[in-house]
């Protein structure tokens, strides 16, 4: 997914750079002041195309937002997740903030898991990476709030949690994992 976004970006950037190079060359090679014919009309078409393309993107992507993921299903598993500087604690049970304790988490493929993510101190990020270290899903861990992230893991294997919000000098060592069988 990320790679296709990169390709999209590179293609669009390539087109943009090409257009500007052509515009530049047209200036260098032009006879004095030929100018653009009917620029207002071209401008109108350009904006219309932009509106249509962006509008399409908007209506296609909005329903794919994480807030609507599996909203009509009943989760099979709840994983309580508490983050604090600089550890993630995950548990099948609720976590007591006075004595936070985590446990090893094993999930099954294709079962709907709901991660209930919060923080004990500062804002952290809860980023789920697969064993190839590709980011598959994320939410923020904000103190005072619980974010519910629903996800189905289609591939078995080891998954890593990395912190995706800067949380202090141990931010880069904040890491945890769980298994999907």
């Amino acid at each position: 997914m990320q790679q296709s976004l990169l390709s999209l970006f590179l293609i669009l950037s390539g087109i943009i750079i090409l257009v500007f190079i052509l515009v530049y060359l047209s200036s260098i090679q032009s006879q004095p002041q030929q100018g653009m014919k009917n620029p207002l009309q071209k401008r109108f078409w350009f904006i219309t195309i932009m509106v249509v393309v962006l509008g399409m993107f908007f209506f296609i992507t909005i329903p794919k937002s994480p807030y609507y993921l599996y909203a009509n299903e009943q989760p099979a598993r709840i994983v309580h997740t508490v983050s604090s500087q600089f550890v993630f604690l995950m548990s099948n049970q609720d976590i007591d903030p006075a004595q936070p304790m985590g446990e090893n988490i094993e999930l099954n493929t294709n079962e709907l898991v709901e991660f209930r993510v919060t923080s004990l101190d500062v804002t952290h990020g809860f980023g789920i990476y697969n064993d190839k270290y590709e980011l598959v899903a994320q939410t923020q861990a904000m103190p005072g709030y619980v974010n519910k992230l629903r996800w189905k893991f289609s591939e078995p294997g080891k998954y890593y949690i990395l912190c995706l919000e800067y949380c202090g000098s141990g931010h880069q060592v904040m890491k945890s994992f769980f298994n999907v069988k």
Binding site: P75, R77, I78, H80, S84, Q85, F86, V87, Q93, D94, I95, D96, P97, A98, E114, R116, L120, D121, V146, G168, S169, G170, V173
Partner: peptide
């Protein structure tokens, strides 16, 4: 050292905050 110090800090702060999470117990 950072880990130890900062964890100590965060735990101390939490006790101070006295968050009541009992409503989270046994959900689902």
């Amino acid at each position: 050292i950072i880990l130890l110090i900062s964890n100590y800090n965060s735990i101390a702060n939490n006790l101070y905050d006295k968050q009541d999470w009992r409503e989270e117990e046994g959900i689902y």
